[in-house]
Structure formats: C-alpha cells, structure tokens
Computed example of a mutant assay.
Amino acid sequence: MSTVVKAYPQEFRDDVVNIARNREPGQTITQIASDFGIAESCLCNWMRQTEVEAGARPGTTAAENAELREAKKRIRLLEQKNEVLHRAAAYLSQANLPGK
C-alpha cells in the first residue's frame, strides 16, 4: 500500500522557514519541525530551496524546473512526430518501388 505525500501550502512553508531562520538561541530545527508536525528533513529541504530561490545557494529554481519539464515534454512530442514521419517515409518509399 502506497502512502500519499501531503502537500503543504506555500504560505505555511514560508512561515515555517521564517520561524526556523529567526529561531531563538538553543532552539533546534528538530524542535521547530516537531512543533509544526513535519519531518526535520522536510524543513531542511524547504530552507535549502528558499536559499536557492533567493540566489544565496547554487541550484535550480522552481521556475527553471518548470521550464525544464516543459522542454522535456516538447522534446518527447517532437521525437514522436519524427518517428511517425520516418515510418511514413519508409512506407511511401516501399510503395513506389518498381515491380509493385
């Protein structure tokens, strides 16, 4: 049985990241994550992605990821069309052979 990942609203993510960044001395990321009912690794990922979005850390932004997904989708579509054209050309060349 598979588990469904619960998506958190962006506003919630932003609030938790801001709280984690501005935490009191002695308060840990683990405690903050526990208080909000999320995994520590989840909070760390959100913090890392926020730094990437701000340009403070290398990595791909959400906009770049969306652009890459769209480009890959377009490439797949073009490859499918190219394959259809190759098959059509092969079929038509066979139909025009002498002796048929």
Rank of each mutant, 00 (worst) to 15 (best):
R21H: 14
Q10W: 11
L85G: 02
M47H: 01
G59C: 04
G26Y: 07
M1E: 06
W46H: 07
L77Q: 15
L68P: 00
E24Q: 13
M47I: 09
Q31M: 10
P9L: 08
R69P: 00
Y91A: 12
C42A: 14
E83D: 14
A33P: 01
I19W: 02
Q49I: 01
A56Y: 05
L77M: 15
A63Q: 13
I29Q: 06
N22P: 00
E70G: 01
K81L: 10
T60K: 13
V17A: 09
G55H: 06
D14Y: 05
E64M: 15
G99P: 01
Y8A: 01
V52S: 01
A62T: 14
V5W: 06
F12R: 15
G99C: 05
L92V: 03
V17M: 06
T50V: 03
I75A: 14
L43D: 01
R23F: 03
M47F: 05
P9I: 03
W46P: 00
R23H: 11
L85S: 10
R48I: 08
K72Y: 12
N22A: 12
D35R: 13
P58F: 07
A90V: 02
I32T: 07
E11T: 11
P9R: 10
R23T: 09
Q80W: 06
A89G: 03
A66I: 02
R13H: 03
T28F: 13
Q27G: 00
A66R: 15
P58D: 10
K81C: 08
V17D: 06
G37M: 04
E67D: 08
Y91R: 12
V84H: 06
P25F: 04
L85F: 11
E70S: 14
P25Y: 10
A39R: 10
G26L: 04
A88F: 07
K100I: 09
E70P: 00
R74N: 11
K72P: 00
A89P: 00
F36H: 15
Q31L: 08
Q49W: 09
T28D: 09
A71Q: 13
S41K: 09
G59K: 05
T30M: 12
D15R: 07
A62L: 11
P25H: 06
D35G: 10
E64V: 03
E11R: 12
E70C: 06
D14W: 04
T3A: 10
A7V: 05
N22E: 13
E24S: 11
S93V: 03
V17P: 01
I75F: 12
R76K: 09
V17Q: 04
N18D: 15
T3K: 04
